[in-house]
Simulated assay, not measured.
Amino acid sequence: MPQPNSSEADFDLLDVPPAPAVHYAEQALLGALLLEPDRIQALGTLHPADFANAGHLAVFDAMTTLTPPPPEVHTSKPLWLTAVLEHARPAARGLTAAYLHQLVGACPDPAHAPAYAAIVRAGHARRTLRAHAEHLVHTAGDPMLEDQPSAALTAADRLAGVLDHLAGRLPAHSSTLPRTPAPAHPVCDPDNEDVEDERLLLAALCARPTEAARWLQPADFAEPLHGQLFRCLLDVDRRGDPVDPVTVLWQAQHQGLITPTLPPAELLGMLTDGSTATTEHSVELILRRAMLTRAHTTGLTVLAYAQDDTNTTGQLLTGTRRALADLTAVRHRWQRAIDPIPARTAQRQTPVSPRAGPPPPLAKPASVVRAAR
C-alpha cells in the first residue's frame, strides 16, 4: 500500500488519544480481517499509521505485508492468525494470541469492514489535525523563536496541506461549521507596550494620514477600543469630512465610546500627540502582531474543534478551512504592507489553496489612508 503523506509523518500520532469509539472500530476491523483476510482489498486507502493503538498498527502492518493463505486453507487451519502474530510481535511485544482471538470476537460482521475502516480514517484525520493545531499554537505563541512569523506561517501552511490531503481521503460532502464555541481572542494587558504603540499610531493617523494604513482593519488592534477608534477614523473619512482628533472624537460619541469612565477629554488625549510615531513602521508592527495573534487563535480554534468528539469529520474539516481562511486574510495584508509588489507577484504565482479559503477582496482605500498632500 502507498505510504501516508510525508507531512503527516512528522508527528507521533500515537501520543494523541483517540476518540472512544475509534478503539472499538479498530478492533472490529482487525477482527474482520483475521476472519476474512481477503476483505482487505475492499477497504480503500488505509495505512498502518491510521491506527491509534500501537498494537493495532503492528497487526494491520502485518496483514498488509503478509500474503493470506488460500481460502480453503484458511478455513481449516489457523495459519493466518499465527503468521500475523509472529510478524507483529516484534513491534508489539505485549501482543498475544488471546488478544487476536479477542479481536475476532469484537467484530459484529466481517462484511462491515469498509465501514469500520472509514471510522479508523476519520479518527486518524481528527488526531492529525489536532497534532498540527497544537504545533501551530506552540509556534505562534513562542516569542523566543527565531523569525517567529515565518515559523508560524510555515506551521499554518503544513496544517493547510494536511487538511487538503485528509479531505482527499474522506468522502466529499457539504457540512455545517462545528458547534464548538471558538476560543476568545486573548485580552491585552493595558500596560503592554503594544497598546501604547497602537495609541501613538491612532494619533499619528489623525495628524498625518498615510497610505500604509490602507492594510489595517479594526480587528487588527490588540486593544478593542483602539480598533473602534480606527473604525471611527475611517467613517469620518468616508463621509468626506476632514480627519483630525476633534472630528474623530465626534464620531466616537455617535458610536457610544464616550462614557463616564472614558470622558471626552481623555479620549481626545488619546488621539493627539502622535508626533513620535513612525506610521509605516507602526502599521507593519501592528499587522505582524495581528497575524501572530490570528495564527495562535487559529491553532486554538482547530484544537478545540478536534477535541470535541461531537463534531463530525465534515464539520471538523469545514471549521478548519474557515479558521485558516481568516488567517490567510491577515497574512496577505501583512505581506503587502511589508512589500506590496513582491507580495502581489507571489500571490499570482502561488495561489492559496481553495480549501484554505481565498483572501477577501480589499476595500477601496479611503482618502484618510492616502498620503497627505
Rank of each mutant, 00 (worst) to 15 (best):
L81A: 02
V120S: 03
T139Q: 11
H185A: 09
A184S: 04
A172R: 05
L170I: 01
A115Q: 02
P181T: 02
A133C: 02
A115F: 02
P186Y: 03
R126W: 05
R130V: 15
H165I: 13
P178M: 09
T82E: 05
A167P: 13
T96P: 04
L100I: 12
A167T: 10
H112M: 06
H132M: 01
T180N: 10
V162E: 07
R89T: 15
A111Y: 11
T139C: 09
W80C: 00
P108T: 10
D142I: 03
H135M: 02
R93W: 08
L85G: 00
A97E: 08
A155F: 10
P143T: 00
P110Y: 06
K77D: 10
Y116C: 01
C107S: 11
P108G: 05
C107N: 08
A152G: 09
V187G: 00
A155L: 11
A151C: 11
A83D: 01
Q102A: 05
L170N: 08
A115T: 02
P78W: 04
L166K: 08
G168C: 11
V162G: 07
T139K: 09
R179M: 11
E86Y: 11
P78I: 09
A160M: 13
H124V: 00
G123W: 01
R158H: 15
E146I: 10
P114M: 01
L145K: 07
E146T: 06
L163C: 12
D142E: 10
H173F: 15
V104E: 04
L163D: 05
E134F: 09
A156M: 13
K77V: 08
